[in-house]
Nucleic acid binder design. Structure first.
Lengths: 342, 342
DNA sequence: GCAAAGAACGAAAACGTTTAAGGTACTGTG
DNA sequence: CACAGTACCTTAAACGTTTTCGTTCTTTGC
């Protein structure tokens, strides 16, 4: 591999001059700069990141913690989309991204970051109850979290409050009054936000939601949601619309409803959350709240890079990215039987 | 950060000794080894990867080229699953993985690899018509490709020949004789394999497949497949079963068939490919060929690491991973009208 | 008792950069 | 002409490792 020394030899200058010329420092003459750059290009030079990192303590490498509790890894559609946005944005400003590994139990996440000299870390998806994750969050490494709040670092998250509010309001406007909400795991920050927003919105709409309409299932697993759906349908006063933790779970509910001989929309309306592939492809189209995963990822990268490059002028903040309500035929107008009776 | 020098000072030995002790070299006494290791642990030492990489030319970092032509990035379900398998396996043997960036147009892929000192590269998903990709493939960096053959490097791919053969045979056994195949882009190696296998199988089953039954759509985009489905249904002698490029495309076909007032399975049978989330969730369940993405990723990592660590004894080979036929209700028994007439 | 071999460790160079400090030659100023 | 100022370049150290080649001391074999 061609190094600064080789270029220096060819150009008849010192390696220091070559380094400074390539880094466009001001104390190098314009003509030498040109000469050095030409030679470098001609010789196929490119810097050695390890040497540079060693000397400068800057790796231009960002770590990504991507370790979901469910073990679905990168096949987690929403987080994969977030990561992709993050990657695109980070690369566009000259940073590479690496995974903060999990399997290698020699080092904790924090140690791994130091070992690899990551300039910063994005916690895209992690089990926040894990003490190692907490150790990382409490460290002094520039960091950004997705969909999770921590006093120490900037967070970028989906606007769950507004999303749920819009969804419930939309369903209400379609005439539904008996709305059930099957939510995801309660330990999740996202669940808390959505559930609170659900209560707040139904409250302000003057709805009385019975306890039995609020149930806990699991994110991204169809079966629990399908099971709870069956139970909800068996209630004497069953809901006319069911909101699911996410789109995949909604498909589970959909299947249960169809199996019960009922029609989606016509008999029971359903809504998901995420706006993932399934919701877009399926007929009847699923009413859902699309989360702007790509933008969330990009914003995260932008804030992280800012925190790295301008630590003095950057402060911890909370960034919220709005989603969009995507109406589909899975929620239909509900005509109250008693009302039409009169 | 605590370095070898610090440990050396504490232990009263030289840095060379510390280095050798921690690396468990044989020319260090057992007692000093213990002393050094204890001190290192107590002081919270861990090595500096940059310094180590600089000195040894080994980074324990693998590059991943993940750049699909369609720009879907990590949201590409199949490749994301492959990547996840790769990541898990690589991490379990002490390698980290980084993305081979795309946006940063200062360097070609190859240069990027040298710059980052990647020990090896996995080409998970790339536009193989790209000259930069070819430059990389032709380089001397240890490499493994997924679903693509190149004389230079080991490839791990899905057994498309067997997969398609099983699928067609299954459909044939269900009584179908008029089988259409809407395939993905022809420039793709995978398409060629599947198409050839389709022809070979139908040939050996004695089926005459009219030209009009073989159509090109796009992978992972529902619309083109839906459009072609409509055209196929309009044929005077239309197919009784349609095979799609993948599961997502099959949903496009499904929608077109339902819109035409026909029943999936009952009137027109359909089959997908991939075995993705949708195929598993949907009712009626989609008949498809599940590709063992996780295993493909893991095998790729295993072979790549072997090529890196034992270059002498490793030769380029082609690894093929079998998939599984997943029967679903989307392909139903077809009872030939004429046959039952007699 | 002595040479040879082996065990345990250290000194120093090297990997490819960056950068502080310093040096030289030129230019303009009073 | 002396001086400061500037423009340009070099020297050398440093970043944290690994590794080659010694060196010293102990053990072994005869």
């Amino acid at each position: 591999m061609v190094s600064l020394k080789d270029i220096a030899k060819v150009c008849g200058v010192s390696t220091a001059t070559v380094s400074k010329a390539l880094n466009n420092q001001k104390d190098i003459g314009e003509d030498t700069k040109v000469k050095v750059r030409d030679a470098a290009a001609k010789m196929g030079y490119f810097p050695n990141s390890a040497a540079r990192a060693l000397k400068t303590n800057r790796s231009y490498n960002l770590g990504v913690l991507f370790q979901d509790a469910a073990g679905r890894g990168l096949t987690h559609e929403y987080f994969a989309a977030v990561l992709n946005g993050f990657k695109v944005q980070a690369e566009s400003v000259g940073y590479d991204i690496s995974f903060l590994s999990s399997g290698n139990r020699q080092m904790s996440y924090y140690e791994h970051c130091r070992y690899r000299n990551f300039d910063g870390v994005a916690v895209v998806c992690a089990d926040f109850r894990d003490s190692e994750v907490q150790e990382l969050l409490n460290s002094d490494i520039p960091m950004v979290t997705i969909d999770y709040l921590h006093q120490n670092c900037t967070s970028v998250s989906s606007d769950n409050v507004k999303g749920m509010q819009e969804l419930v309001t939309y369903i209400y406007q379609k005439g539904h009054r008996k709305i059930a909400y099957i939510h995801g795991e309660l330990f999740s920050y996202v669940t808390k936000e959505r559930l609170t927003s659900f209560y707040r919105t139904t409250d302000s709409l003057g709805l009385e939601i019975p306890e039995s309409f609020i149930r806990e299932a699991k994110y991204l697993v169809a079966k629990p949601s399908a099971q709870i759906t069956r139970e909800l349908l068996r209630l004497k006063d069953s809901p006319t619309c069911i909101i699911y933790p996410d789109d995949s779970s909604a498909i589970g509910g959909r299947n249960a409803i169809v199996e019960a001989g009922l029609r989606i929309g016509g008999d029971v309306s359903i809504a998901g959350y995420d706006g993932n592939l399934i919701s877009r492809l399926l007929h009847p189209k699923l009413t859902t709240v699309s989360q702007n995963a790509d933008k969330i990822g990009k914003e995260a990268a932008r804030h992280l890079v800012k925190a790295i490059e301008k630590p003095k002028t950057t402060l911890v903040q909370r960034v919220v990215i709005e989603g969009n309500l995507i109406p589909g035929q899975s929620v239909e107008d509900f005509l109250d039987v008693e009302a039409s009776d009169t």
